[in-house]
């Protein structure tokens, strides 16, 4: 997955899709996950990294990240990359 090229992201977690005019605010965890997506990290790398700071099982974390990515895809923020 990758972030669509036209999406504008601010450091504070404000997302704007200039093609639709839709905007979204992410919480700090959302910003962190999106940054990992941007850096091309795999699901495994993401869960490992986040689980170091939070007391959560890997399976729940994996599901939550997948859910979140699904939501972002539905809103037109993420798209499939060639590697998917």
């Amino acid at each position: 997955m990758r972030i669509k090229s036209n999406i504008a992201i601010s450091d504070s977690g404000f997302l704007l899709n200039p093609a639709t005019g839709e905007s979204f605010s992410l919480n700090p965890m959302g910003v962190a996950i999106l940054k990992m997506v941007k850096d091309g990290k795999s699901l495994e790398e993401m869960t490992q990294e986040i689980s170091q700071d939070f007391d959560v099982s890997l399976s729940i974390l994996e599901r939550d990240i997948e859910d979140f990515k699904g939501t972002l895809t539905q809103y037109g923020i993420l798209e499939n990359s060639k590697n998917d």
């Binding site: 036209n6 200039p18 093609a19 639709t20 005019g21 839709e22």
Partner: peptide, 21 residues
């Protein structure tokens, strides 16, 4: 082109944003 962001009960835009499409 514009997307309505704030719509009154009469369907009128009281807020909107220009878009690239």
């Amino acid at each position: 082109p514009m997307r309505k962001q704030y719509i009154t009960d009469k369907g009128k835009a009281w807020g909107g944003i220009t878009i690239t499409d």
